[in-house]
Each structure stands twice: as structure tokens, then as C-alpha cells.
Nucleic acid binder design. Sequence first.
DNA 1: TCTAACGTTGATAACGATAACATATTCGCG
DNA 2: CGCGAATATGTTATCGTTATCAACGTTAGA
Lengths: 342, 342
Amino acid sequence: MAPRRHSLSQTDVAKACGLSEMTVSRVLRDQPGVSLENVEKVRATARLMGYVPNRIAGALAGAQVPLVAVIVPGLANMVFPEVLMGLSAALDGSHLQPLLGLGHYAAATEEHVLSELLAWRPAAVVLTGLTHSDGSRAMLARAGLPVVEIMECEGKGIDCVVGVAQRAAGAEMGRAVAAAGHRKVVLLGSAQQEDRRQERRFAGFTEALEVAGGRVLGSVSYDGASALPKGRILAAQALDRWPDLDFLYCTNDMIAAGALFGLQAAGRVVPRDVGLAGFSGLEILAGLSPRIATTDTRRFEIGERAGQMIRARLAGGAPGQRAEIAARLLPGETLRARRVAP
Amino acid sequence: MAPRRHSLSQTDVAKACGLSEMTVSRVLRDQPGVSLENVEKVRATARLMGYVPNRIAGALAGAQVPLVAVIVPGLANMVFPEVLMGLSAALDGSHLQPLLGLGHYAAATEEHVLSELLAWRPAAVVLTGLTHSDGSRAMLARAGLPVVEIMECEGKGIDCVVGVAQRAAGAEMGRAVAAAGHRKVVLLGSAQQEDRRQERRFAGFTEALEVAGGRVLGSVSYDGASALPKGRILAAQALDRWPDLDFLYCTNDMIAAGALFGLQAAGRVVPRDVGLAGFSGLEILAGLSPRIATTDTRRFEIGERAGQMIRARLAGGAPGQRAEIAARLLPGETLRARRVAP
DNA sequence: TCTAACGTTGATAACGATAACATATTCGCG
DNA sequence: CGCGAATATGTTATCGTTATCAACGTTAGA
């Protein structure tokens, strides 16, 4: 209707109340030191006028910008959406808003996106993984704000770290696989560069397996997005190359599900002939039969914990906090019986 | 190291170059009218100093806040993550950043989140669906900014609308199902309140099916998140109640995949005894066998188109744009042969 | 009665950028 | 050679809020 030239400012509310802007500001931020009478008058007037405070102006004037920059590599596979839900849940109630950037699994892109997000002078930053470009590190050092690195927790972080111990998770699965009597394992991995997490997991797995008398015959990997058909193809390749394998350890559940179909198509009975395990605990596959062995990495909790850490840091908490979320082994039905006959 | 009192402003860069702030500002925004010599000097100095512009200040001074408020109901099922990826792709290259809010499938929450996001005075808003509370509508009217409503496109929007025609998509599947010779159909739906989209889709499906001689026997529905086990349970319930059904039309692919397993567990051959179809075209299930008939709703494109519309509107384009993304029927292998014997 | 302390309010100056206008400087052309 | 146009730069005011400090009225204690 009317030309929305200057969109209803605190000044307007102040005038309408016959009070100063400062008093209005105090009321709207729940600061103490305003008479009850005026608190109510301001609240009522603001609501009546439909006034929404301008955080841009508030941020410029105030000490802190209530924004959290979040950079995740992508949203293609439910892992990071779940993290975001956890983060969002933890941030609810504070006035902090997540500002989302996608790093596309490349440190160079991450650096570019980071500079774009830091331009907002956010109160805190959430990054994925512990590997970042020198440029990114320099920017973060200059900005001097709370940083939370999520997903991994092996290695030195910039500030706070929340993640699952990939190596330990891999090792736990390695022990379980060996204990179930599997001996000749092939790894189904992603060819994604810079995937330290998979690397660590596979390393821990391999070591634990070998200690227990098993052996990794080799690995095959895919590139591109993970999806069922990829797993099927990889399983076929693995069977072709190592016909006597008796276990497939897959880098994620989607690949594992595809591999399951691939094994069945090749006439192998799971887990009698060949067992398999995935990683992530994607709820989406919870109903498959047989239930695939996997490691639940509790992504919602990771996001939630990250959010809590940020709030703690902004409330004056100490830097350098670390939280290790314990990954949970879900044995499912694709490992052989736990105990081999004596 | 040094106390980060005032975090490196344009003024500092200007001083270092021996130029005015205005010239620096112009260079950093790629505005014309600065000598090549000074452009390079400013760029070099800014990079050297590690200067990152402050968008908060820029936004307050300038006409427009380069932020897009995006409210999606949730991130639990890949639909909205895919939309976000499309949106993010379309926004790349502009300086627009998405500011994310979760509406949790409730109009009241949406309204609250909307007011929180509008406090940032974003340049545009993206909302899900065409159903919003009066409060939300009032706020948007007052704000007077470009609004894009996504996913649905049947009905009147606030401003721009991008979506698939749910009714038409349902009808297309209805015709295909009837043409494939299926006659006795049960609907597997979600009990989610406020799901207009499913409602329209089922209505279009039912009508087209009946025109072609088929019949909907009834429907069963679930609540909570959609997942494979739910589909399996629903399929069992449906078989129990209508033993002679010969088709299941499911509200999404996850449910359909579960239903497929449920049917197989009950000894029905798909599609000979019972056919089925899902909805969404979740890439994640692309490798299942038999490939499930579905409707690809092209969510990435929806997000992308929304982003393009926003950029067009902000560049002075006309309001009220509408884009209908054509849903794509993917017949898969769970419909009977297209032609029944003559 | 006077002063100190408190509780409440308001005036003023930032915050860091940009819009709009003003001011050199250079160039072309009659 | 001088004038207008174009180019390049600088000056000033402003965006809407909050920090800071000053000022007010009131009450309690000396």
C-alpha cells in the first residue's frame, strides 16, 4: 500500500510510546532497569505496530553478530542434513541463526565460502573436518572467533572439536568382523579426495582385523555420489577380483545396501558366504532385511553438541573444548554368528 | 595476538593505499569509474592485509541486505536438502547467502521462525507450500519483499511460485496405472497434518484412475518419519484388509520401497500379482530391483528456479512469476506391461 | 535538612559501510 | 584557447541500533 520507504524503526515505536529509543531498545532486549509500566507499554505498542527489530543495525552497533557460519561439504547424503537439524535444535531459543555454506568437498571452495561467510562477522563458525587450507586458517586466526570443527576428532583442532573417533570406530568393527569369523575382507571405498575420515576408519579396521587374524585382500572404490547401484557394481568387481573374499567393509550404508543386492544377485548367501558392514547408521535403511551391520555415528548429536559448545563459548566459556561422541556399533544381521564353533 | 578491538575496516585499507574509503568501496564492489592503477593497488593491498568487507555495515548503509531467508519444514528426508542444493547453486556467484530456518511442519512455528528471519531484513524470502498463517502473511505484506513459494503450484501465491502440479502428477500416474491393467488400488499415505500436496496428488490419481475404470479400495497411513519399515507394515495392513488389491500407490519412494519388501515377504510377485508406485524420485533408491515406478519431482530444479527468480526480482523483474516444473513419470518395473492383451 | 545511593530515563557518539553530491583533472573540438 | 563532457576522486550525511555516560527524581540515613 503505502511506499515502504523506511521500514518501521525503533524510533517510531519510541515516538508512539512517548519514550526514548534507548528505553525501547532495553525493553525489547529484556534488559533490566525499566519500570514495569513502561515495559508493558513498549511491548504492547511494538506488537500493535507489528514492529520487528532490525538485527542488521543491532549487530553493527552491538558487540556481537548473532549469526553462526556453518560450512558443510554437501547435502547429498543425509549425513549433514542430520547434523544441521541437531545444530538448529541447539540454537533454538538463543537468537543465533545458522548461515549456511556448501564446501563441495574441496578445500579451495571451502576457503572461498568461508571468506564469504566471515564477511558477515558471525559470532562463531562451524567447519567440517580438521583439514583446511592455510588461507582458511589464516582468516580464522585473524577473525579470532569461536570455531567448532565437527565429524572428526583425531588430531589437533583450531579451537573446539566434536566428532566420532573414526579410527576407533573402524577398529571396533574390525574386531567384530574377526570375532564373527570373517577372514578375507575387501574394502569398498569412495575415491573422493581429501576423505581423511574414511582413511582413518579403514586404517583402524585393518589393524584390528589383522591383530585378530584376518586380512584385507584389497579395496575397490567409486567416485561420484554414493548410491545403491554403485555398491552393486563395486561388489561385482570385488567378487570378480577376489572370488574367495568373505567380507565387504563399505564406506557407507548406501554402498553397503547396494553391495548386499550385488552379493545376492551373484548367488552368495549373506552372511553365510559373505558378510558385510556399512557405516553411518542411515535410518533410511533401517528396514532392509537382513539388517546391515553398521556404525551409528550419531550425526544429530554431533550437531547438537556443536551448537551447545557455541553457546557456551559465547557465554564466556573456555576455548579448546573437545567432545568425542561415541560411535555405536549396530551388529545387524550381516555378520556371522558372534562365536565360531569351539 | 593483538587485541582484535576493531576488526580491520575499509578505512584501514584506504589509509594503507593513500586513497579515500569511497574509492576502496568502489573497487571492492567492482564498480566502474576507478583507474586501473588504483583498482590493482586496492586489490593488492586488501589481499595483503587480509581484509574481508563487513556486510553488516554494508547492508545497513546500502539499500539491500544480501540475505535470502529460507524456511523449509525439515531436513529429515532428502527432499529439502536437494531443494537447498539447487537454491544454493543458483545463488552462487551473486553475493546472496541463504539464511536457514526450520518450520517443523507447523504453521505456528513457521510464523515464529519467519519473524526471526525477517529481523535480518533479508532481500527475499523462500517459503514452502502455499499454506501460511495470517500472521505470516501480514508480516510479509508489511515487509514488502520478493517471496517465492516452492513445491506446490496449485492455488494463489503471495508473489512468485515454483512447484510441480501435484494433481496433474497424481493424475498422470493414475492413467499409467490403469493403462497397465491395475484395477484395485490402495493408497499408502502419511498422516501428517497439513499435507496438501499428498491430498491433491491422491485426488488427481483417484479421479484419473476411476475415469479409466480402476477403483481405489481405501487407504492406510502412518505417522512419524517415513522409512522402510513403515512401508512394510503398511503393505501388510493393506493386504490384510483388502486381500484382492492389485496395486499400492505410495506417498513417497521410501514407503514404496518398504512396501515392495512387504509384498515380497507376503509372497506376492511384483508386478504380476501386485504393482506399486512411489513418489519423489529419490535418487538414493535408483538401484533397487525391480526399479520402483515413481514420479520425479525434480527438487534440485525447484530450488534452482527459485534462486533464479529471486535474482530476477532483485534485478528489477516483475513480481508474481510462476513456474511449473513438470514432474516426470518414471515407469520403472513395478507396473504391469503397458498394454493388456487385446 | 542535606547528602549518598538508587532506580529510571535520555542525550550523544559510535559501528563500518554506501548514496548522493561535489570537486578536481583530463580530453576533444570548434 | 577555452568550454563542456567525461573521468576519477573525495566529502558529507545517513542507515537503525546499542554503549556509555550524564541527569533526573526519589528515598534513606546522618
